[in-house]
Design a protein around this nucleic acid. Structure first.
Lengths: 332, 332
DNA sequence: AGCCTAGCTTGAAACGATTCACGATCTTTG
DNA sequence: CAAAGATCGTGAATCGTTTCAAGCTAGGCT
């Protein structure tokens, strides 16, 4: 019951604590016979290293914190997997926190992670100003910002959502659609704003006028919100023939509701989503969408974080931009 | 850069380290003036408590580990939220790990958590025998098993999936369906097996024969697997008129594929799912399903874990069983 | 024999917080 | 006015690791 410590192991194996520690951390320094004796003792006693003590001594832990907005969107799951995979290959662990889009909760997550003395943080900032980021940095944490343009003084990795928005609209335009609608989420979120910016830019470039381009802004980006958007759309006089939804969940809710209302997709309305989550491919009408390299995004973020944490002194911050791509299915 | 410690704060405020610690942990023991002086010093220096040191001294951390099979299913998100909420109200934190259904990864998660000296573990065991559970227990961890019947020597909380399976089939039978199909996932997973057991029991009880009840076992429980199941079903001579899918993702994939094939739902085939994830309500054909009280499940698990961790000596293990309920929508 | 070297092992000093028995002051009371 | 509480603060011991200078041994070299 009283936790087994390295000291107990040392006693059992008839060596000093220093030697046990060496077996654990630099086994090559220890003679074969001793090493085996210590390992045996560890096994017999069921010793488990106390990370708290290790961290205390080393000043920093072997884990990184990842602060995401939510885990509700399958999008994040892949990202998380990518990040975790990259961490693990370098012998680090990842710990997940969610801010639920609230600045207060985000702050709590960061406090928690700071108290844990994590090596670094990967974060999609919600209420985080550059100042607080710099502060984290000064405390010796490596910081990687996910999917945000506006933090230039740290490493970051993101998808080029402006390009993504353009791809979507260009695709619709390429299919001869001239009356378009954009269903988007909260424009305060940078990636969402960018998709919207890219989309409108592409539309304008093609000479579309204000009334050829309806915009619906929703607070959520859930299937339910998509459903409501469809209902709203159906109230409009002239139905658009092409719709770009800022994510797949919105698109799925929207398509489903349109179908329920008897509108043919893609017959009467073409719909394109964003993300390429698994469900996109298995909807009633498999969804054309803009794919984000989510796994790669997570992987890159983790790699950057690890690199910075390992760098001694001269570290150069990098901003890695990944490109989205078009996945054509049946909804357009 | 050299992390600010309690000692620096003490120096700055002109008090001893003991006093600073008291301000942090039992502020009522400290005179108002001193308390404020210390708080000011903390603020000015940007002191952040080092959890490693605290844990080392206290022998145990204020966090619990939660080991889930995956985060890919939205089902887990709610569960996680419920658990986190309960933890937070009691001043604890939760740390998430995923086993991805692999015993090896599960072991790694547990090692990680043990090294962190978490107060306890909430887990849906994958490759975990009662022995290892007991071992964790002996080491002073509180253990709560999620959604498994077979561990009687620890606290656990689960949904009565046998009842859930019965509810589903009884509902179909109630709608006069006599030729049924069950699409299920890996029967090695206890909850899945239970749903199946409940379903077949209900069918047998109603006098259905072998050939009135087709069973399709899939390895995954994803929309893609549901889609494949639909294709398989369409190859069968006599199409069943009612289908029970062991989760909503399967059901959604299946319904979508049926619709694509021109089969009317619920006109020709009725489908009932399991879980009641958000998507169930927003499908083309809103899905009838068996709802699990996920949030409550998470909450209960956390509450049990906290209770056990707080209990001194005489703790009685409890098994809490929650009931699923029927949500009727349009797919039946 | 005497000296080096290489290879192992040792043991004590951190790391930063918490705890607790014990002082130091200040009030109250008989 | 002395004794007895009350109220606050103190500082050393402690938790379990890692680290590192120093010690020991055995063997090789001159």
């Amino acid at each position: 019951m009283p936790s087994i410590s390295i000291r107990d192991v040392a006693m059992r194996a008839g060596v000093s604590v220093g030697t046990v520690s060496n077996v654990l951390n630099r086994p090559n320094l220890v003679a074969e016979a001793t090493r085996e004796r210590v390992r045996a003792a560890i096994g017999e006693l069921g010793f488990v290293r106390n990370e708290s003590a290790r961290q205390l001594r080393q000043g920093r832990s072997r884990t990184f914190g990842v602060v995401l907005e939510s885990l509700a969107n399958p999008y994040f799951t892949d990202l998380a997997r990518g990040a975790e995979a990259a961490m693990n290959t370098d012998g680090f662990d990842a710990v997940w926190c969610t801010s639920d889009g609230s600045a207060a909760k985000e702050r709590r997550c960061l406090d928690f992670l700071e108290e844990q003395r994590v090596s670094g943080v990967i974060i999609t900032p919600v209420g985080l100003d550059a100042e607080r980021i710099a502060e984290l940095h000064d405390r010796g944490l490596s910081v990687v910002v996910l999917d945000r343009r506006t933090y230039s003084s740290v490493c970051s990795t993101r998808v080029d959502h402006v390009a993504g928005g353009e791809i979507a609209i260009d695709h619709l335009l390429g299919r001869r659609h001239r009356r378009l609608a954009i269903v988007t989420g909260p424009l305060l979120q940078e990636p969402i704003k960018d998709r919207y910016a890219g989309a409108t830019a592409a539309a304008r470039r093609a000479g579309l006028t204000e009334q050829d381009l309806v915009t619906l802004v929703r607070n959520d980006m859930t299937p339910t919100a998509g459903k409501e958007a469809a209902q709203r759309l159906l109230e409009v006089d002239a139905l658009p023939t092409g719709v770009f939804c800022a994510n797949d969940l919105l698109a799925i809710g929207l398509v489903n509701e349109l179908l329920r209302a008897g509108v043919k997709v893609p017959g009467e309305i073409s719909v394109i989503g964003y993300d390429d989550i698994e469900l996109a491919g298995t909807s009633v009408v498999p969804l054309t969408t803009v794919r984000q390299p989510r796994h790669e995004l997570g992987w890159t973020a983790a790699a950057l974080a690890v690199a910075e944490a390992g760098a001694s002194g001269d570290h150069e911050h990098r901003q890695v931009v990944l490109s989205p791509s078009l996945v054509v299915r049946e909804s357009t």
